[in-house]
Nucleic acid binder design. Sequence first.
DNA 1: TATGAATGAGCCTTCATTCAT
DNA 2: AATGAATGAAGGCTCATTCAT
Lengths: 230, 230, 230, 230
Amino acid sequence: MTPKAVSSGHPSHDDDRTTEGAQIRREVGRAGAPAQGRELRSRGKQTMRRLLDAGIEVFARRGFHAARVDDIVKAAKTSHGTFYLYFANKEDLFEALVADVAEEMRGLADSLGPLRAGPEGRAELRAWLERFTTLYEHYGPILRTWTEAEIDQSELGRIGTDLLGQLALALSERVAATGAKGLDPAIAGLALVAMVERFNYFVLSGQVSADHDELLDTLASVLHDGLFSR
Amino acid sequence: MTPKAVSSGHPSHDDDRTTEGAQIRREVGRAGAPAQGRELRSRGKQTMRRLLDAGIEVFARRGFHAARVDDIVKAAKTSHGTFYLYFANKEDLFEALVADVAEEMRGLADSLGPLRAGPEGRAELRAWLERFTTLYEHYGPILRTWTEAEIDQSELGRIGTDLLGQLALALSERVAATGAKGLDPAIAGLALVAMVERFNYFVLSGQVSADHDELLDTLASVLHDGLFSR
Amino acid sequence: MTPKAVSSGHPSHDDDRTTEGAQIRREVGRAGAPAQGRELRSRGKQTMRRLLDAGIEVFARRGFHAARVDDIVKAAKTSHGTFYLYFANKEDLFEALVADVAEEMRGLADSLGPLRAGPEGRAELRAWLERFTTLYEHYGPILRTWTEAEIDQSELGRIGTDLLGQLALALSERVAATGAKGLDPAIAGLALVAMVERFNYFVLSGQVSADHDELLDTLASVLHDGLFSR
Amino acid sequence: MTPKAVSSGHPSHDDDRTTEGAQIRREVGRAGAPAQGRELRSRGKQTMRRLLDAGIEVFARRGFHAARVDDIVKAAKTSHGTFYLYFANKEDLFEALVADVAEEMRGLADSLGPLRAGPEGRAELRAWLERFTTLYEHYGPILRTWTEAEIDQSELGRIGTDLLGQLALALSERVAATGAKGLDPAIAGLALVAMVERFNYFVLSGQVSADHDELLDTLASVLHDGLFSR
DNA sequence: TATGAATGAGCCTTCATTCAT
DNA sequence: AATGAATGAAGGCTCATTCAT
């Protein structure tokens, strides 16, 4: 789980986005929450970053409900008081993370060019899958924790729909564009995402053993074949 | 081909199994837990059944951690004290449910005959999917909650591996038997299960709208085509 | 802990006493309690006896508060329902036991003849101490549990004063009768009882090792010397 | 000869010991308990002190099992949560108190010089008894509750043996040193302690009425006479 | 900005007691 | 007389959140 690999690829809560993006989200989300209007200096940004990363780690390890603020705070090497300086509560932190994933997901969906037959098409698909895999290595736990948190209709309800659902939708469009007949694009998109996500999960959780490249080759082949060799 | 195995509800804890099976489970599982050696009379069996059903309902609604024993007890129209007469704690009840799903899952995997081409093969596949769907309607929440509960390494460790993982394995064998070339059976099994499970989930959670028959037709077609029209 | 050794020496809850004595106690104690007016047949007497003995055992093992009715009921090989057929509650059973000890104690005090110098006096004292020891082996736990139960001013308040206190009083009188000068009889009685009780406790609890005879010889000597060789 | 050791209250948990001693105790005692590694600031020390004192009071009033954490917390004018910031549970607090008594007891035993005949010897003995009495006024309840708590074999087993047993041992040695013939030092030590403890108990619990000085004079005389005027 | 002590609502679990059979 | 399932009040412990420093 290298935060670097990801933080480079998709600007999270550092740089300019934190000051802006986070602010927007908060002002929309709810009034009166901490850290809202505050201009974060570099020190503050660092702390927030540490808390977010700690959140990913702890949510991954224990899930949403079982995660204690104390765990997060310890992982971030800071104090309880500080936590509430940046987030209204545990859910708020989680939502910040979800917002990040959602943004990454959107970017990922957008970055998928037309699906094409042939070796180049396959290579392009593989490259895209690699991006998904990298994203999943970092944010996968949030994706899965999402289901758990989603369960009790939290105050602000579901942020959109299922994060993966959105991805599936995007993929459906690309599938439809291939004009493949005898294949419902919606189903195919869904199936595709399900397959990719579960496969990554199985591999990451150690239930299936495969290294990075094997994983990608296998997925790329199955998907590409499924779409074009029929 | 009838969804009998499942539609008979949850054949596990009534009839003969409860008196026998439940006992076996507990005696093997751990010593000192309540309700263990007790011979359950019909009254007791009913109560246990109510608690198990309530468990499914509440775990479905709130997930494992958020589920309160109080919720379960209310849903079962019984008292706190009674709960602990039958289960050592929340986790114990959950494990009992998991054991049930595992058993159903095993039965489901075993009941899948050879995958065949042609209309009959497709019909058989559809019938099998119907059984899965029925099972999923009842036990799906447990399946999904599993991930959450699994997170904190409970005492008795994972019962086996992922429940769906086992199903995937069984399917892999059937796929291998088809002799389909250019198709890794393990991957295919995994993909198949992932697709079916997620699709059911999307439909049940209302993120995709489809009625029972539509769902089955679509799944059967996609899978059958994927396997044989290549 | 041989119930026989004791049950022979001091008629407890069997024979005629149970039907009479117990009844009297109950009617005085409180109205509306179970088992009150009931004439106990031999079956019932047996059950009550089993419960009382189980009580001694369990109170000894766990003390008053930590003792669960369930423990007692299991030790007596009977059911919860049955327990409440004979006793109003846990405290009621305890009080029945205390009443027994009190009675035994009174008998013990009465049985102590004048304290005399010389070998015969010493032998008589030793014989008396043996009776105390036998009693203590059986009822000691109740004596000690007494302190714990006494702590929360239970409804009917202390039955009299401290059980041992009464014994000490009786002894004081015998000491006074010896006309020993330079010795406050009250203090001496108290000291005597304290010594004997603690010594028995230390031996029984294994903190001091001594067999039955050693224990008696030592106590008899020390006491007799203390009283007469000054 | 001054009752300083005790009258300074409970020298244990204030001053330097708390920061050091408490830590030692905990680190030795068990791992994972709250408040363990924490450096207590003066605020924290005060709170801990209040909880310990409240513990003594409540255990005295209700005994170990009947004491509710709620009682202790109320007596200490603090909250439930705070309690668990300093102690793992009720037993942990009790053990901390026992450790204190044990320490005092050891100091008390050590402070007993050689037993001597004559008026000075008697005065020295009286002074020592005064220290015991002062200690007993403060920690007596813990001593007596000890039996109750000891009953259910708590995790870390008995800290040593009976607290008073240790004191008895120390006294035995002094008695042996007097060279008094016809007197088993072990018995004498035991008898001495039993007498002193019970006498204090009877006086404190109001079963025998005597004021502070009377109590001390009586005890000193009886003991000194018993040892030397034979 | 940061800290960590304090708080108390909430939830799990136990166990004395009742009651239908 | 006996049984054991059912009940619910009571109490232990956790953990999100606040607040004084």
